[in-house]
Design a protein around this nucleic acid. Sequence first.
DNA 1: TGCAATACTAGAACACGTTCCTGTTTCTGG
DNA 2: CCAGAAACAGGAACGTGTTCTAGTATTGCA
Lengths: 198, 198
Amino acid sequence: MTTTASGSVETETAAQRARRERILTATLALAARGGYDAVQMREVAERSEVALGTLYRYFPSKIHLLVSAMKAETDRLAARLSRRQVPGDTRAERVSFVLERSTRSLQRDPLLTEAMIRALMAADASVAGEVSAVRQGMSDLIVAAIRGDDAPTDHDEELAAILQDVWFARQIAWLGGRIGAADVWRDIHTAITLVLAD
Amino acid sequence: MTTTASGSVETETAAQRARRERILTATLALAARGGYDAVQMREVAERSEVALGTLYRYFPSKIHLLVSAMKAETDRLAARLSRRQVPGDTRAERVSFVLERSTRSLQRDPLLTEAMIRALMAADASVAGEVSAVRQGMSDLIVAAIRGDDAPTDHDEELAAILQDVWFARQIAWLGGRIGAADVWRDIHTAITLVLAD
DNA sequence: TGCAATACTAGAACACGTTCCTGTTTCTGG
DNA sequence: CCAGAAACAGGAACGTGTTCTAGTATTGCA
């Protein structure tokens, strides 16, 4: 969606693509090391060998930067998950599989997750597009798991939305120190079994 | 909660209680006027006629300040709602009544809500206590509505937690400009009917 | 009542996200 | 290839949350 000032869409030179790549790499590295607070714009700029003003040209705020990084990460997760058919005979089993893997994947890198989720929460209207993209990717995963080989139902999307809301809210509770890492998955699993009583 | 440095609990002079009150009043006024960004610590201090350092003695961060303000507000809401029996014959009807009123109450003052929800999201572990208190108050309301005159069931608390997560996540989506104010209630209502299929 | 501890005021100082400015390099159309 | 436009580098500057300092007022206790 990168639109230049002249209105033309998606015309990036190789150097620009490389800069964007370096910026995102530096962002992920800093986030993995020290979480949200460690992703400092000056530091990101320095590491990616880009002027501060240039960083802001590519990503108009720290939130945009981190949400974009999250999009890249969730795309990788989705690619990994969608490589093969989700196992499980019931909706609950399949959704549990997907969300358990997602949760575990995030918790493997707690600081990185903290940085990304915090950005996702802090996003205002100017980042709505990017945030919706992240959410849509997640929703697609869940809907696919709900359906499995079954026929689609009217409620699939709505159920996925609810589960994602719970998933999201539990991550926040975890970041806020109100529940432990293990509780996250337990609570989500509880929600799955209550919402998807087969 | 308020613990002095000496370890004694809850020994506040009248002047101190008055200061705390002025601070919270100023906070609510500023938040109602301009949302989260308008609640500037220097401005709060000035309006409540307190030095900046003193403000920080009472509330160790802007987040603490706003979450405390939210606690006060939700207490008032809970008091109003619990004054009389929740109407409705089914769990879904009763919970809808409570959450619809809560949602409407919040949306009546969008900027104030934005300020409080944003603080709630940004809360880290140091605010866990206050955040849990807010959440508990809300949960009590929902659980009471689920039960009505019925016998308590094992799942009441869990169901309430899920609904609150959805409620919370939908508010965030609204603040993030991803859904409109009307969608908030529609989505929550959808979740209620799906989760509390009587 | 006197004095040590605590609380308060006023304001400077610091950190980091963001904006802005100036000069240079790179790109693009003719 | 050239001129103008756009992108970039380097870095100063600004705003706001937070911390710190020095001096003054208040409180609690012997």
